[in-house]
Amino acid sequence: MIWLDTLLQGLMLGGLYALFAAGLSLVFGIMRLVNLAHGDLIVLGAYLILGLCTALGLHPFLAAVLALPLMFGLGWLLQTALLNRVLGEDILPPLLVTFGLSVVIQNALLMGFSADSRKLPVGPIEAQSLPLGPVTVGVMPLLTFGSAILVIWGLNQLFYRTALGRAFRATSDDPVTAQLMGIRPRSIFAIATGIALVVATIAALYLGARANFDPAAGPARLLYAFEAVIIGGLGSLWGTLAGGLVIGVAQAFGAALNPEWQILAGHLAFVAVLLLRPRGLFPRAYD
């Protein structure tokens, strides 16, 4: 029974990691851009929600709704003003620019909010739980997991059912031909990064509601997110969800054996999957 409980906790945790990873997966699938600042942008989103909560006296869920368009704007601006300029054959410039951005965001947050760890005040819902057959599960983890499924499903619908999604796929597969069809890759990229940051804001809400965060929390989230994307396979959103679940379950079982092994177990699962399946579990696109 304890193992069933551990498995469930792991799946719930994996849902959170899938949320961290979904935005990254989208951007990576469309423009092969590796955003090393993604984790820090999630943490920035958490601080934005916290700021809106305290300034306007709103509940974090409402504050997050307000934060969504702001973060979309930030993503659009980031891509237009900065990242579009460094995309190209050479992978070094985008890597180094986002790496620099990560350091800038972390230290700007450190200056603005100090190194104290914070938490989003979600109220009594935080402690509530539901009996689910032989095990009980917290309402917040369940909500996180549900949101992860919903976000991945929504992104898939967007990707495969809309004109924008068609433009995304076309640009991903062949930017030159897409341009001939009247698509501007750069504005497509800007929208994609905007959407990625919208997803990051949803991730930020659950990050801040479930656990403490501080300005230095970004890089670790980035690693989990990346592991999920790579395990899932390039360009596959459901794969990213599966990747998140693999990391989450591995961490939960690691922690059950020895609390010090939680993070290590996740990393080892990543290495093991890559040794067996170098291109991930469900690759859609080729590099």
Binding site: V86, P93, L96, V97, G100, L101, S102, V103, A108, M111
Partner: peptide, 20 residues
């Protein structure tokens, strides 16, 4: 302290944009 790191990050970004 932290300003130093922010400046360093910004210089890195600027170099990649204007003088690779």
């Amino acid at each position: 302290g932290t300003v130093y790191l922010i400046v360093l990050g910004l210089i890195g970004i600027a170099i990649m944009l204007f003088a690779r």
